[in-house]
């Protein structure tokens, strides 16, 4: 059973609040006195998942679960889904529009960063939505 569990709403295209879930996560993990590397990796995973929902989806949620031996981050949105997951996992591949790239987003690093910084990652996607589950082990 999770020692801590909380769900945060993430709105589509809400760039002003971008990073808020990750900042919350950072504060919680710092309170738990976890190793800096665990905090850092968890925040990267959470930030990228948050940005993916903001940039690419119609909106969704991020659920954070903390267990005795791991952190689980579940990012769920309501579509439109990822057409080709294999391509989306490739560094540098992005479907983000030009105006978002100009802000420094959409570098095609989101999913690769989640994979590189987690110990487990699963992704399921259809036109009705995408669910990304990532875990960081202590």
């Amino acid at each position: 059973m999770a020692l801590y569990s909380k769900e945060f709403e993430v709105k589509a295209r809400d760039f002003d609040s971008a990073g808020e879930v990750s900042s919350n996560l950072r504060a919680i993990l710092k309170q738990l006195s976890l190793a800096p590397d665990i905090v850092r990796r968890s925040c990267i995973v959470c930030y990228e998942a948050e940005m993916n929902i903001i940039i690419h989806s119609y909106g969704g949620t991020i659920k954070i679960e903390i267990f005795e031996d791991r952190i689980r981050i579940i990012a769920e949105d309501t579509g439109p889904g990822i057409e080709d997951i294999e391509l989306a996992m490739k560094e540098g591949y992005s479907t983000a529009p030009e105006e978002i790239r100009e802000m420094g987003f959409g570098a095609g690093m989101g999913l690769p960063n989640i994979k590189a910084n987690s110990d487990f990652m699963d992704i399921k996607s259809s036109k009705d939505g995408t669910v990304v589950v990532a875990e960081i082990l202590f």
Partner: peptide, 17 residues
Amino acid sequence: ITIQSHINVIAVALLSE
């Protein structure tokens, strides 16, 4: 050092320490 000057820069700076 960056030419990005919008609010998300602060979030990234905070998370990256």
